[in-house]
Structure formats: structure tokens, C-alpha cells
Computed example of a mutant assay.
Amino acid sequence: MSWAFLRDLLSGVNKYSTGIGRIWVAVVFIFRLLVYVAAAENIWKYEHDEFECNIKQPGCENVCFDHFFPVSHIRLWALQLILVSTPSLLVVFHVAYRENREKKHNQKLYKSPGEIDGGLLCTYLISLVLKTGFEIVFLILFYKLYNGFKIPHLVKCDVRPCPNTVDCYISKPTEKMIFLYFLVATSCLCIVLNLSELSYLICKYSVKCYLKRYTKKHRGSTSDCHKSGTISHRRAAAAGPDGHPKTREDQPTALD
């Protein structure tokens, strides 16, 4: 399997991410993608051929393997990596839309097409929610499919067409379990990073909006005070020495 597309996608997303988002990209690329390609894929490469049962009943070994491993770990991890990285395309597409819109109108419509604000902020938050959701769903799926995050040395199978309960042995269970714990830990780390970035962006832009409204309100009240002071000054100037408004007879005319 070629992972060039996923690598290019993560590199493109890195340009529009926050500091926490760049850490997430580094964790996915180094501790998940490279570990998957360099080591994990080879460990599970011949898992079916190396699964052995102490009986030669035709079909028994295949049925037992399918019973204990309904979906291959390695294929499920590949699907997880793809789905977790895909929501980042929303951000890339939104930035591309902004750039095309500027070209179409032939004018500068944004301070920077990649700046996280306005509609792009909503898209970015949606992508974070989707990535976190996919991570949690796959962790639950792993736990349910394999009855926990453990790989036993020996499993007992009594599924037909096996004539009785047979013992089946899994190859390299300790090595597989180490990589399983490592990938689960990196998945949990990615969830923490996504939630941290989500909280950071929400707090940052909530404070920004509050300060913007407060400044606008303060400027509005200052402007009202200035206007009322100007009106009072004009009224005082229009009044006579005794405090009463000047009549037309009191006011100087052109003949005076």
C-alpha cells in the first residue's frame, strides 16, 4: 500500500494548523504512520499462515482464525489512519475555496486565506470533532472485536467443523501486544491533543469576541457622552446671562 497521498495530506494540513495541531500531525506521521509502515505491517503480514491449531480437521483452522480475528488488526489500523486523517481535507478544501474566490473576484478578500477565522474556524472545529470521534469509535471497536487490548498465547476453539475443543496458537503474541499497546497509547494521545486544540480555539475566539464587543460598547458609550456634552455646551451658549434663552430681540442683527 502506498501512503504518499496521506503523507502529502498531512504536510498540507500542517501549514494551516495551530501549534497543537502541528504536534498532532507529528505524532500521526512519526509515531503512527511510520511505525505502521516500518514495523507493524510486517509483524501481522503472515498472521493467518502462522496461526496453528493442534488438529488437522479441514476447515477448522480457518474457522477458528476467523472467529478470533474477524478483522485483521493491521487492516483496521490502516482504515483508522485513513479516516482520522480525512477530516483534515475539509480545512484544505476550504482554504482552496478562499484562494479561488480571491482569484475569481481579482481582489484581496481575506487577510490570509489560511488564517483560522470566520467560516474556516467552523470548518477547523468540525474537523477536530470528527477526528476525535473516529479515534474513540475505533478504540471501542478494537476493544469489542478482540475482547480487550490483549493478545493471548493460546486460544481454545470449539466452533464447527472442529470436532471438539481445540487449542490454537498465535504467532509472536508478545511482540504483537507491545505494538498494540503502543498504537493504542498514541491513539489516546491524539485524542488528548484534539480535545486540547478544540478547547484552546473555543476559548481563544470566545475571549476575542468578548473583547471586541466590550471595546465596541465602550466606544459607543464614550461617543454618546461626547455628543451629550456638545449639546449641553451649545444650549449654554445659546442661553442669556440670566440663564434664559436669548430672544430674537436680544440677538445681534446685521444692522447692529
Rank of each mutant, 00 (worst) to 15 (best):
V155A: 07
I170L: 15
S85R: 01
C122A: 15
M177C: 11
D167M: 04
C168H: 11
F142M: 12
L193H: 07
L81K: 00
S72H: 09
P113G: 09
S88F: 03
V129S: 08
V95K: 00
S187K: 07
I191D: 03
T174R: 12
V84Y: 02
Y146L: 11
T132K: 00
I74Q: 01
Y124F: 15
K156N: 07
A96N: 11
F65Q: 02
S112C: 13
F149Y: 15
K176D: 14
I55P: 00
P70T: 09
L130G: 00
Y124C: 10
F65H: 02
E135G: 03
V137C: 05
K104G: 01
N194G: 15
C157W: 02
S112Y: 13
F179T: 07
L83D: 02
Q57G: 00
L180Y: 07
K104H: 06
H105S: 10
K176H: 12
S112A: 10
I116W: 06
N100M: 06
S171N: 11
S196M: 15
N106Q: 11
C64Y: 03
E99V: 03
Q80R: 05
D66I: 10
L193S: 08
Y146H: 15
H67D: 04
P70E: 10
L130Y: 04
F142W: 07
K131V: 05
E99Y: 01
L154M: 14
T165H: 14
A96W: 06
V129D: 06
E197N: 13
V184Y: 02
V63N: 01
H73M: 05
F65E: 03
V71D: 04
V71K: 05
K144T: 09
S85H: 01
L183M: 15
K176I: 14
P58K: 13
F182K: 06
Q57W: 03
F69L: 06
L125E: 06
Y110D: 11
N54F: 05
D158K: 13
Q80L: 07
V92P: 02
E102W: 04
L90H: 00
H73G: 01
I191S: 09
L125H: 04
S127I: 02
I136D: 09
F179C: 11
N62E: 10
S187F: 08
I126V: 14
F179G: 10
N62P: 02
I191H: 05
E115G: 07
L121T: 08
H153R: 08
C162M: 04
I82S: 06
G133T: 13
V92N: 04
S72V: 05
K104P: 01
C53G: 06
L145D: 14
H105V: 06
K172H: 15
G118S: 10
V137F: 11
L145P: 12
Y97N: 07
L189N: 09
K103Q: 12
V192D: 05
T86I: 03
L81N: 00
L139T: 02
V92K: 07
P163F: 14
V92T: 06
N147E: 14
E102P: 03
A185Y: 12
C53R: 08
V95H: 00
F182D: 07
L120V: 10
F134R: 00
L109P: 12
L183F: 15
T86H: 02
L130M: 11
L120G: 03
L141F: 08
N54M: 12
S199Y: 03
N106S: 09
P173T: 14
